[in-house]
């Protein structure tokens, strides 16, 4: 069933103002607003891919996060072939998502910046394959335009 047709609770027009929560020690981000769909740039500002999802686990590495009993952390940035599933619904299997460890991330702003070169990441293997196997076989395809 589409989320758009799920039953929704009634909400009164006027609601009391809620108290603010104490500010955490670190910078605050909303995942959907500040991270998802952002472009990922490598250490040389070369676009690598987009941030399609985030992997969450407990501090001990257990990724079976089923309750808020323990603090949960983002440990990986996920990217992959999500265009088709966004149009038709669902999500690609976890095995199809490429994982970039959060330890490679050095800045979050308009784009997400990595501290490593994109050339060595699994996320760029399609581009590398096309470059080496297709573009490189076209005459003139192995050097910059003159």
């Amino acid at each position: 069933m589409s989320p758009r047709v799920r039953p929704r609770p009634r909400v009164p027009d006027e609601l009391p103002e809620l108290p603010p929560h104490l500010r955490p020690a670190g910078r605050v981000l909303d995942a959907r607003l500040h991270l998802l769909d952002r472009q990922i740039l490598d250490v040389e500002d070369v676009p690598v891919t987009t941030l399609d999802d985030l992997h969450v686990s407990y501090a001990d590495g257990d990724d079976d996060v089923t309750s808020g009993d323990r603090p949960a952390f983002v440990d990986q940035v996920l990217t992959g072939p999500v265009l088709v599933t966004r149009v038709f619904g669902g999500r690609p299997p976890a095995s199809r998502l490429v994982r970039i460890p959060w330890s490679d991330v050095v800045d979050v702003g308009v784009a997400v910046r990595l501290g490593v070169r994109g050339e060595g990441l699994d996320a760029t293997w399609v581009q590398r394959w096309l470059r080496d196997r297709v573009i490189g076989r076209i005459p003139g395809g192995r050097h910059d335009p003159e």
Binding site: P3, R6, P7, R8, P9, H21, P24, A25, G26, R27, V28, L29, D30, A31, R32, L33, L35, L54, V56, A59, G68, P71, A72, F73, V74, D75, P101, W102, S103, D104, V105, V106, D107, V108, G115
Partner: peptide
């Protein structure tokens, strides 16, 4: 009793530091 839907997940960069940035910790759900 249904209260609504999760529209976003609030994170705080105050988790374990494994690189140059602290890992985002889940603060709560919007």
């Amino acid at each position: 009793r249904q209260l609504g839907f999760v529209v976003d997940v609030r994170l705080a960069l105050d988790g374990p530091v494994t690189g140059l940035m602290a890992a985002p910790r889940i603060v709560g759900l919007l």
